[in-house]
Write a protein that binds this DNA or RNA. Structure first.
Length: 608
RNA sequence: GGGGACGUAGUUCAGUUGGUUAGAACGCUGCCCUGUCACGGCAGAGGCCGCGGGUUCGAGUCCCGUCGUCCCCGCCA
């Protein structure tokens, strides 16, 4: 193939097939760079050698598909190209066959400037010919294979579960598939094979995995596609630690397959600690954590700055940003999205001028060095009255008011980190900071619904020690002070450089506990039966303790490939409006198809 | 659902305060060239300035709407 010939092949006959990557015409001497998946080799056509073949070669254009037969020749010392692996040799052509011509493509795979994404996606087959895309897709293959091999070696079976399954309208929206045989009914594409894999544990398969497509009908992001691939696994009789060991094992194999060595075991951090130190449940450990500098400010300072003294005062430190201009400092403000009365103090210099003593303490406590950027985030004194926050959720370590401050600061920290990535140099390729985030809360307060909701999913087992709180809380679903707030889940996330790679838990294996959770979530027994009856029934037939996890394959490959978007590692992705620009999907369907399915499409309002 | 950025030649971009015939590079076409490798030289073709409306003597430029792509918030059990 085009990338394999070396000096040791000199003198051999060879046939190369591929695409014309570049043509350099010197009159009687013509060079063609021929490209395939493996690389590029230079082919030489010379009138001295064969006039007719050279003549034919002159008709070649970019992206023509050709076969060239010739002799591998060692290049003269002065014509060696050290920039390419095949640069010591070239193929001297004796024969040329044009296997196919090509229209002039809208862009060339060999172009140095990257074409806009719309055009790339429309002509994805051309885009995928580019080196970078070939590399990404190859990495994806290698990673998936390494994971399959590793899990197989650990006694896991890869077992398929249905794509056409039952809608369980909770959490993300389902993609629906209408049934023709049973008009008016719908299958749903799985958001995850969650219940199937648990039933496989009940079925005696002990260790299951699947590299499986999942579907969620929600708005897209750079790291979120409506269909995505998960490394899904489940095992019986696990401690969280045994699941983590499996994950660390296959990630080590996967990263090795991509040429990176990683350290295990990964560090672990409580959810509460993650919030307090990073303001987010998926901390990026490559940058310094927050410092609470409340005690560095005197009570006069606090009231002077209109800061709520009962809430943390967060110092965000971004290293090595250097002196900021007035304009750059002003630009920080719009990057701040305030939650729950949080305020930003972006001008640390001004604080230093006015409160020298406090600033001294702050820079000491944050380990501030020359050129580091310090931004403060604190609660606004006016915004909260103070009584509510002390009364709220006595069990919880982090109150909602504190959470608002931490979260606002966490978002700002990330925005600043991204903006000043050039300066702080903390985002270097190959720096992988993994983390297990553990002890998530079992329930989250939904302000809209005024009730507690499952934070992970309703099959997650609560902590053994928190069962009592759960029992006490069952009847106080709508009370923000419910003991439910303090129930911890046996759930864990694996995080890499601020990206959530995967999420898992030890599951509930007892039917009575499962029913109690459904009840705690406000589901009546009938509702639970109607939705999950088959599952509750299965739980009653000797269900072993079990647990597992699912990791996003796309995200892993994205990070390994150093890509900014999932679209770079998915061969045929969707745009932000969930459209496939190449095949132009989705589309309306014919009246006949709809009739067969018993479906009437209502025109959107204002479009008749 | 909300906020922001962008849309000019096949591609990447420039286009001044609203003022003559909208430019460059790469790519493309033709000719020349025997050691290039992002080859080089000469000549040439190529534009609904996303689309629709408005302001104006005059709009790529200002205003309104609309479509598309990207990013973020909400959402993602």
């Amino acid at each position: 193939m085009c990338g394999v010939l070396r000096a040791s092949d000199a003198g051999k006959k060879a046939v190369l097939m591929g695409w014309v990557n570049r043509r350099r015409d010197h009159g009687n001497l013509l060079f063609i760079d021929l490209r395939d998946r493996t690389g590029v080799t230079q082919i030489v056509f010379n009138t001295e050698r064969d006039r007719t073949v050279h003549e034919k070669a002159e008709t070649l254009r970019n992206e023509y598909v050709i076969a060239a037969v010739g002799t591998v020749k060692l290049r003269d010392a002065n014509t060696i190209n050290p920039n390419m692996p095949t640069g010591e040799v070239e193929l001297v052509a004796d024969e040329l066959r044009v296997l196919n011509e090509s229209k002039l493509p809208p862009f060339l795979p060999s172009d140095t400037a990257l074409t806009n994404e719309e055009t790339r996606l429309k002509y994805r087959y051309i885009d995928l010919r580019r080196d970078a895309m070939q590399f990404n897709i190859e990495t994806r293959h290698k990673v998936a294979k390494a994971i399959r091999d590793y899990l197989s070696s650990q006694g896991f079976f890869e077992i398929e579960t249905p794509f056409m399954t039952r809608s369980t309208p909770e959490g993300a929206r389902d993609y629906l598939v209408p049934s023709r045989v049973q008009p008016g009914t719908f299958y749903a594409l799985p958001q995850s094979p969650q219940m199937f894999k648990q039933i496989l544990m009940i079925s005696g398969f002990d260790r299951y995995f699947q590299i499986v497509r999942c579907f969620r009908d929600e708005d897209l992001r750079a790291d979120r596609q409506p269909e995505f691939t998960q490394i899904d696994l489940e095992m019986t009789y696990p401690q969280p630690e045994s699941v983590w060991a499996v994950v660390e094992g296959f990630l080590t194999a996967a990263f090795a397959a991509a040429g990176f060595e990683i350290e295990t075991p990964f560090p672990r951090m409580d959810y509460d600690e993650a919030i307090r130190l990073y303001g987010i449940d998926k901390p990026d450990l490559r940058l310094p954590p927050f410092t609470d500098v409340r005690d560095c400010l005197s009570s006069e300072n606090l009231s002077d700055l209109a800061i709520n003294p009962n809430l943390p005062v967060i110092a965000i430190r971004i290293p090595k940003v250097g002196e900021l201009s007035r304009k750059e400092r002003d630009d920080i403000k719009p990057m701040f999205h305030s939650k729950g009365g949080a305020r930003v103090y972006e001008d640390f210099k001004r604080i230093a001028n006015r409160y020298a003593e406090a600033a001294e303490k702050i820079s000491k406590k944050t380990n501030m060095a020359e050129g580091d950027l310090i931004v403060l985030v604190a609660g606004s004194a006016q915004a909260s009255s103070g009584e509510k926050e002390t009364a709220f959720a006595p069990h919880r370590k982090v109150t909602p008011q504190e959470l608002a401050i931490y979260t606002s600061a966490g978002l700002l920290r990330l925005a600043l980190a991204q903006k000043y990535a050039e300066q702080h140099q903390c985002f270097q390729k190959g720096d992988f900071r993994f983390l297990w985030v553990t002890n998530f809360p079992m329930f989250e307060w939904d302000e809209g619904e005024k009730q507690w909701m499952a934070a992970h999913h309703p099959f997650t087992s609560p902590h053994e020690q928190d069962m009592k709180l759960l029992e006490e809380g069952v009847e106080s679903l709508h009370d923000p002070l419910s003991p439910l707030s303090a129930v911890r889940a046996l759930a864990y996330d694996v995080v890499l450089n601020g990206t959530e790679l995967g999420s898992g838990s030890i599951r509930i294996h007892r039917q009575d506990v499962q029913s109690r959770i459904f009840r705690a979530l406000g589901m009546t027994e009938e509702e639970a039966k109607a939705r999950f009856g088959f599952f509750l029934e299965a739980l009653e037939y000797g269900t072993p303790p079990h647990g597992g996890i699912a990791l996003g394959l796309d995200r892993i490959v994205m990070i390994l490939a150093g890509a900014e978007s999932l679209r770079e590692v998915i061969p045929f992705p969707k745009t932000a409006r969930a459209v496939d620009l190449m095949v132009d999907a989705p589309t309306p369907v014919s009246e006949k198809q709809l009739r067969e399915l018993g479906i009437v499409v209502r025109k959107p309002v204002g479009q008749l």
